[in-house]
Amino acid sequence: MGVFGKEYTTQSDERLMELVVRGDERAFGAVYDRYHGRLLNYFHRMLWHDRERSKDMLQDLFTKLAQRPTSYDPSRPFQTWIFSVANNMCKNAYRHEEVVRAAAVEMRAGPDRVEATNGIGVDHELFRDRLQEELEKLDPDHKATFVMRHHEDMAIKEIALAFGCSEGTVKSRLFYTLKKLAERMKEFNPNAVYHGKA
């Protein structure tokens, strides 16, 4: 069955990967086009908002896939598989740069920023930095679960498949991560300020 260029966009990830394994360059291009943006954002969030590093990681990931397309397990959905690979790469990056990350967290943390958010309006830039700071304090699995769920809009089931754990574990991680972040970032909650003033 011939797959024409127009059909590549409508093919499922798994079908595209079948073609990639057979050496179909256009199928590989379609996979890249479909996932490079999401994966880049994922790396960006997971790797301290470092754009250059995120691009490097993205390139590494797809280069590995290009060199060994057979490493993909066809029994798994491609999306969960590729995100689990990306997550493992992030974990490796954490391990290798633990000291650098600790230094970066110290540099980013500053009480002045919190003071600036005391008000009804929320500075999104500050909120983003603060959220990132708090996420980096979390366990990597909890952080990755949170990012996948709330930034990549992945379903609970897909996250469970990506981590190789149960859906209950994913839900539990999400709940306690959210609870912890809300506790640590309550200064960004206008209602909390209102209640505090009251």
Partner: peptide, 12 residues
């Protein structure tokens, strides 16, 4: 308060 804080954070 905790419920609203969590809800607020999720929305943000």
């Amino acid at each position: 308060a905790e419920y609203e804080a969590m809800r607020q954070l999720l929305g943000q």
